[in-house]
Simulated scan of single mutants.
Amino acid sequence: MKKIMLCAAAFAVLCMVSCGTSKKTVSVMDFSGEWDIVSVKGEAVDAEEAPYIGFDQKTGRVYGHAGCNRLMGAYHVDSLKAGKMNFSQVAATRMMCPDMTLEQNVLEALGNVAGFSHTGDTVELKDAGGKAVMTLQKRVKPAVTLDDLAGRWVISSIGQMAVGEVERTPELNFDLEAKRVHGNASCNVINGSFSQEEGKPVSLRFSQMISTMMACPNMDTEQSILQALDKVRAFDRGEEEGTLVLLDGNGYPVLTLEHAQGEPAK
């Protein structure tokens, strides 16, 4: 009889411990893709400034544009508490614009985010007190597609530094059908291939890049371009019309391209 009572008591304790320690997960919203920032701190955003945030749910990373500079960082959606999320390690490139107010507000708002609510294709990001600090609206289409890469592009800057005087104007020429790239890195001719990750329309990676072996007076620019090409993981539309930027794995621009007219250089 005592054994039965002891077993029953042990089972009851086991049940209480199990019930007390188990945590139910909640349905986590899929933020994947790109979202336009339509208001910050209750103020509507001018469409011409076009700030946006892109979410990579697989890696927990964010990228985008804050109004002047590109932004990058990480985000976390709480799987145990519905409507709770936060951003971390948010940083931006360091270009200066005439008016930095929007960018400062965007970065400050992201730092205050503690939760969210959503209705259809609209999301409100909220602070710890439940006040909306930013409104996002889902983009119907990605900012760019692979077709935007077609043709001839002059390499105008490496990272944040403009390309200076070089032996030859560095450029890239994309053949979308063959998935090949041809051009020069300011001295030598370069050739290779490129690919994309499945389901990621703005991903980009170069491979099998080879170059001729000619020596030029200044090889620093060429070496920087080749190193940058090896880091490329994505692309996006540039700030100026007719430009594209090639981005590394953290969303930082490593090369800026300007669309060129005419036949490619030999």
Rank of each mutant, 00 (worst) to 15 (best):
249 G>C: 02
66 A>V: 03
194 F>Y: 12
75 Y>K: 00
60 G>E: 07
16 M>Q: 06
183 G>Q: 01
40 V>R: 10
244 L>F: 10
45 V>N: 10
233 R>A: 12
264 P>E: 07
202 V>D: 15
159 G>N: 09
15 C>R: 06
138 K>G: 06
78 D>M: 09
266 K>M: 05
250 N>P: 00
260 A>L: 04
77 V>M: 14
209 M>I: 15
7 C>F: 13
106 V>G: 06
170 P>T: 13
114 A>Q: 13
147 D>Y: 02
210 I>E: 08
154 V>K: 15
81 K>E: 15
205 R>N: 10
99 D>L: 04
130 G>W: 07
156 S>G: 02
105 N>V: 00
103 E>Y: 05
28 V>R: 07
63 Y>T: 11
32 S>D: 11
49 E>G: 00
144 V>R: 12
97 C>R: 01
138 K>Q: 09
2 K>G: 03
112 N>W: 03
138 K>M: 03
81 K>F: 08
215 A>P: 06
135 T>H: 00
155 I>C: 08
241 E>W: 06
160 Q>F: 10
194 F>H: 10
35 W>C: 00
76 H>I: 09
128 A>R: 14
216 C>H: 01
22 S>P: 01
178 A>W: 01
198 E>V: 10
98 P>L: 10
113 V>G: 11
104 Q>K: 13
71 L>R: 07
175 D>A: 12
25 T>L: 01
87 F>K: 12
201 P>M: 08
74 A>K: 14
90 V>P: 00
90 V>T: 09
75 Y>T: 00
119 T>H: 06
16 M>Y: 10
230 D>W: 09
263 E>Y: 11
56 D>Q: 11
148 D>A: 11
23 K>L: 00
32 S>K: 13
101 T>Y: 00
109 A>I: 13
147 D>F: 05
55 F>Y: 11
121 D>P: 04
213 M>I: 03
41 K>F: 10
36 D>R: 04
113 V>C: 13
10 A>H: 03
152 R>F: 09
68 C>Q: 03
72 M>W: 09
34 E>M: 14
131 K>F: 05
195 S>M: 08
254 V>Q: 04
193 S>R: 09
181 V>L: 04
26 V>T: 07
224 S>R: 14
17 V>W: 15
152 R>D: 15
112 N>F: 03
229 L>P: 06
169 T>P: 02
80 L>E: 13
266 K>P: 08
